[in-house]
Design a protein around this nucleic acid. Structure first.
Lengths: 384, 384
DNA sequence: ACCGCTTTGGTAAGCGCTTTCCTAGCCGGA
DNA sequence: TCCGGCTAGGAAAGCGCTTACCAAAGCGGT
C-alpha cells in the first residue's frame, strides 16, 4: 500500500516490490510467473495476489538480458526512392504490400508473445547496413523485405542472428520466403495467350536484380516463346515496382514513338497502377487497345479502372510464414538443420478482372472481403 | 583475430571482447562509444579500431537496462472487428490509415534513434489491457491509436510511462493529437450546402464514442442547422469506420425502404468506400442521385469511382507529431509541464473530387504524388 | 526413530552494458 | 624539487530480471 494515488508519474513496480509485498524472495516471484518448478499453491497464491495488487509486469529489457531472449523480431522494409525530394511523396501508395505482409507476421508473432520492431531503410543512405545491424541488437532475429543488404553483409549478419528474407534467395545461413512467381506468371501468361489470343507482349520489370522480377519475367518470356508470340525487350521496360516508375516508363515510350505491345505485364500492381494512369492520360483504352496486368493483388487492385487482372499472392501468409520460419530458428543453438538454407514458396492464384479483357467479376451483395489468407494452423508451412 | 570464419553461427561480440582487443577496460570502450568525457585520442583510436574489426554493436537490452532507456516506443493499433470470423478478411483495407500514421512516426523516430514496436489489439479479447501494459514494458512510451483503453486503465498506464493518444482526448497525464475534425467537416459542409445547394444530409458515424466521429458529426449538424437544411438522424446511421460497416448500413436502409438523403457524409473514407459500393450495387448514381463524401483522404480515395471528395488530414504529420510529442515526454522526470495534458490539432484541407458533384480534377502528366505531408523541421509542432 | 529422497524457497551469480568513484599519472607554478 | 590541481582510465556497483546451487523441510520406508 504505497501512497502514489496522485497523478504524479511513478516508477513501475519491480520484482522486488512484489517479493516484499508477498513476503517471499524474488526467486519465488520469478518462478511463479514463469511456471517453473511449480511452487506450493499457497506461495503461488500470495505472489499472484501481490502481482495483481501492484499491477506488476516485468521489465522486458531486464528479462531479455537475463533470459537471452527479447521476444522481438526486427523487420526491415526498403523505403522507395522518391522521384522528387519531398519526404513522403508517394510512399503511402508504395508500401501497401509490405504493410500487409507485416500484418501477417504480427498476427502470428502475437501468438508467441513476440512483437515486431519495424524499420524502413533508405538504401541510398551512407550506411544503411549499420542501421540494420543496430536493429539486430534490439531483436532476436530479423526479417528482411526485398534486398536490403549486400550478400557479404547478409552473411555476416546471419552468422550473428537468425535471418529470414522475403523475395530474396536463400543462403546457407538464411531462409527465404516468396510467392510462386514463376508458376503465377506462367498461369497468367497462358491465360493471355490462349484465352485472349494476344500476340505481342512486354514485361515491365521491377528494380534491377530483384529475384521476384526476374522469375516473373522469365516465366512470361518462356510462355511467349513457346507460343511463338513476340516479347518486346529493352532497358526502357525497366520499372521500379512503383507507380511513378510505371507511369514514367510508359510516358517515355510514347514520347519516343515506340509502338506499344498488345499486352503490358507488370512486375507488380503498383507499376500497373502507374501504367494504367499513363495510358489513360494518352487516351489509350485498356483493355481495348492495350491490356495491362499486375502481380500481388494488393487491395486497391480491384478499385482501379479498369479493375486490374493480376496474380494474387497470399500476402499475409507470406508474412506469417516468414515469421514462423524465423521463430523456428530462434534459440536453436544446435548447429543442426533448422530452416536455414530453405527456400519456401507459397502458391499464387490468377485473378481475372477487367484489365486483361475479361468481363468484370460479379459484385457480391456485401462489400467483397478479401479471401481469408492465413491458415489457422500455426504450423502449416510449405517446404521448397 | 578469432577463428569464426566458418558458417557456424557465433555469438555477437560483447564490450568485453572489444576491451580485450583494444587492451583497455570496458569503461573506456563505453566512454568512447558514448562520447562522454572524451578520452585521449590514442585510446579512442584503439577502441574504434577494435570495434570496427569485431563489428561490435552494443546489445540494446543491456544498454536499456543500464541506461534506463530502450529507444523503443510502442504503438497500439486497434484491430477492426471482422464481420465474419476469418482471420484477416478486410483487414488489409481497413488499416491503411493507421499504417500511414505509423509511417510518419517512424520517419521522425529514426532521427532520434528510436524504433517502433507495433502491436494490433483486438478489443474483444479477454484482457486487451494486459497486452498493452506488456508492450509498455518493452518501450519507453506508448502511442495509442483510437480508443484502446478505458479511462481508468489509461490513467494507470500513463502514470507509469509517457502516453500519447491519437484521436482521443487529452487527460492530465496524456497528450492527444488529432486532425481538425470540426474545421474540416465545417468546410466540407459549407461546400456542399453553399456551392452545391444540397438540402438533405445524413452523417454516417464511426464507431461509438469516437471523438473524431463526434466532432465531425457535430460540425455537419451545426452547418446544416445554420442553413435550415435537413439532417437525417438515427441509429441506422452508425457505421464502424470500416467499408463493410458502410456497405451494410446502406444495404439495410435501402432494404427498409428508407428514402436516402441527397448527401451522405461519411465519418471516414473507408466507410465511404463501402457506401459507394452499396449504392453502385443498387444502381444508384453517385453523385447524380446521392452525393457521398469521406474524411481522411487515404490514398485509394482518388482511385475510387467516382473519385472521392473528402477532407484531407495530414496523415503522416499526425504520426510525426505524435512521436515528437511523446519524445518530449520521455526521460522527463521533472513533474513540470511537458506536453502532458495538451491537445494538439493539425489543420485539414478540403479535397474536391467527383463524388460531391464537382468535375474531376485535372490529371497531371506524372502519376500524382500525394502532397508532401511532413514539415522538414523536426521541431515544427502546433500547440493547442 | 533414523536415513535418504524429494520437494520448496532462499542466496547469489550472472546477463552486457553505463556510470560513479577513485587512483595514478601528468602538468605548471612556486 | 615539491605540491596542488587536472585529467584519463580502471575497478566496481548497479540496472531488474532468470536460474543454478544449496539448505531446510517434509515424507515414506525400514
Amino acid at each position: 500500500m504505497n501512497a502514489d494515488q496522485g497523478t504524479s508519474p511513478s516508477q513501475p513496480p519491480t520484482i522486488y516490490d512484489v517479493a516484499r509485498v508477498a513476503g517471499v524472495s524474488i526467486a519465488s516471484v520469478s518462478r511463479v510467473l514463469n511456471g517453473q518448478r511449480n511452487p506450493r499453491a499457497e506461495t503461488r497464491e500470495r505472489v499472484l495476489q501481490a502481482v495483481a495488487q501492484l499491477g506488476f509486469v516485468p521489465d522486458q529489457a531486464a528479462r531479455a538480458l537475463s533470459a537471452r531472449l527479447k521476444e522481438v523480431v526486427g523487420v526491415v522494409v526498403r523505403r522507395p526512392q522518391w522521384y522528387d525530394s519531398s519526404a513522403f511523396a508517394d510512399e503511402d501508395e508504395n508500401l501497401q504490400f509490405p504493410d500487409m505482409i507485416n500484418r501477417g507476421m504480427e498476427f502470428v508473432a502475437q501468438r508467441h508473445g513476440f512483437d515486431l520492431l519495424i524499420r524502413t531503410v533508405d538504401l541510398d543512405e551512407p550506411d544503411a547496413g549499420r542501421h540494420i545491424f543496430g536493429l539486430a541488437r534490439k531483436s532476436d532475429g530479423l526479417i528482411l523485405h526485398d534486398r536490403v543488404l549486400s550478400p557479404e553483409q547478409l552473411d555476416r549478419l546471419a552468422r550473428q542472428v537468425p535471418v529470414v528474407t522475403l523475395a530474396g534467395a536463400p543462403t546457407p545461413t538464411t531462409a527465404n520466403v516468396h510467392g510462386d512467381n514463376y508458376g503465377g506468371m506462367r498461369e497468367l501468361a497462358r491465360h493471355l495467350i490462349h484465352d485472349h489470343h494476344y500476340r505481342t507482349f512486354a514485361f515491365l520489370a521491377g528494380h534491377e536484380g530483384s529475384p521476384d522480377s526476374l522469375d516473373r519475367g522469365q516465366a512470361l518470356a518462356d510462355e511467349v516463346a513457346a507460343s511463338g508470340a513476340t516479347l518486346l525487350q529493352g532497358e526502357q521496360w525497366r520499372g521500379s515496382y512503383q507507380a511513378t516508375g510505371g507511369a514514367q516508363a510508359i510516358t517515355r515510350l510514347i514520347a519516343d514513338g515506340v509502338a506499344l505491345p498488345r499486352v503490358i505485364a507488370c512486375a507488380n500492381d503498383q507499376s500497373a497502377m502507374g501504367v494504367l494512369y499513363a495510358l489513360a492520360l494518352h487516351g489509350i483504352d485498356v483493355p481495348g487497345e492495350v491490356a495491362v496486368t499486375g502481380f500481388d493483388d494488393i487491395p486497391v487492385a480491384r478499385h482501379l479502372r479498369p479493375q486490374l487482372t493480376t496474380v494474387r499472392q497470399p500476402i499475409q501468409a507470406l508474412g506469417a510464414t516468414a515469421f514462423e520460419t524465423l521463430y523456428s530458428m530462434i534459440g536453436r543453438t544446435d548447429p543442426g538443420q533448422d530452416a536455414r538454407g530453405r527456400d519456401i514458396a507459397l502458391p499464387t492464384t490468377l485473378v481475372r478482372r477487367e484489365s486483361c479483357g475479361c468481363t468484370p467479376e460479379d459484385r457480391s451483395p456485401v462489400f467483397p472481403p478479401r479471401a481469408p489468407a492465413l491458415p489457422a494452423d500455426p504450423n502449416t508451412r510449405q517446404a521448397d
